[in-house]
């Protein structure tokens, strides 16, 4: 089963690569970690591009932020990260916490935080930062669906990223995905920890859906964990075998997140 799926993923990846041969961008890529996903993406995501991360619902905003930080760590292992955040998010989810950021594996000393009053200010700051080649990644966090964030705005960010080589990640909370110039668009929701013997929370887990990719990669769900020791994402086994051996834990362990994974096969 797994072997077949991997083979299929590899084939899809090859197809995607062939399709992408026509695309002008020849920028280097960063891999996310899960082999199946990286193969599908043709080696990973483009660095000098705009990527969008949507929270599945406002309640999953922190997961979207966590996923964006993971992407940032993959894209730029040591360069400065500029994190621009609408103040509204601080009220909803709390302010960025350095010790927690360090716990994910990102050195807070690399971070420059910009606290913007509204979405317009976020966009201006993001555009400024995206044009600065010394920056590795710009993370922009926007609440809701403000009118200033239209196709033109995303195109400008995309162009700035392509010119400077900076990776721009825009996270959106309480917003519906809409047309944009982003190279890839993801949706993130929190995912329950796998059942363990002690019943403890595990690594940060995300149920990530690749909604759209400019190379035409088909949408699919990717259950992932953040492995902070190796600073990479890891594919979560859909149904851990160990779970069968521990029926006692199962009653409390929600299994719902595992289902969408099957649908994609």
């Amino acid at each position: 089963m797994t072997a077949r799926r991997d083979a299929l993923a590899a084939l899809k990846g090859t197809l995607a690569r062939l399709e992408r041969g026509a695309m002008p961008s020849a920028s280097p890529h960063f891999s996310l970690g899960p082999t199946g996903l990286d193969a599908l993406l043709g080696g990973g995501l483009a660095r000098a591009a705009l990527h969008e991360v949507f929270a599945a619902s406002p309640a999953h905003g922190p997961s979207a932020t966590g996923f964006a930080l993971g992407l940032a760590l993959r894209a730029a292992p040591s360069a400065p990260v500029v994190w621009i955040r609408q103040r509204m998010l601080d009220q909803e989810f709390g302010r960025p916490y350095g010790h927690g950021i360090a716990a994910l594996g990102l050195d807070p000393g690399r971070l420059v935080l910009v606290r913007a009053r509204d979405a317009e200010a976020v966009l201006k700051a993001t555009h400024d930062a995206a044009r600065c080649g010394a920056v590795g990644v710009v993370i922009a966090e926007i609440w809701g669906a403000p009118r200033v964030l239209d196709l033109t705005a995303s195109r400008r960010l995309s162009l700035a990223a392509a010119e400077s080589g900076v990776t721009v990640i825009v996270t959106r909370t309480d917003a519906e995905p809409a047309a944009s110039a982003a190279l890839s668009r993801w949706q993130v929701r929190a995912m329950a920890s796998p059942a363990t013997e002690a019943g403890l929370p595990g690594l940060p887990a995300f149920l990530v859906t690749l909604l759209r990719h400019r190379a035409g990669i088909p949408p699919r769900d990717w259950p992932m964990e953040w492995d902070r020791e190796h600073r990479r994402f890891r594919e979560r086994a859909a149904l851990p075998r160990r779970l069968d051996a521990l029926p006692g834990d199962r009653a409390a362990a929600p299994q719902a997140p595992a289902l969408p994974f099957r649908r994609a096969g």
Binding site: P62, P80, G94, P96, A102, G109, P201, R228
Partner: peptide, 21 residues
């Protein structure tokens, strides 16, 4: 940029949240 942060030891699970109220 030289503000020093202590190197976090790898610990599981994560002990501090990403965002703080």
């Amino acid at each position: 940029a030289t503000a020093a942060w202590p190197v976090m030891r790898a610990a599981r699970p994560l002990t501090r949240p990403l965002q703080l109220f």
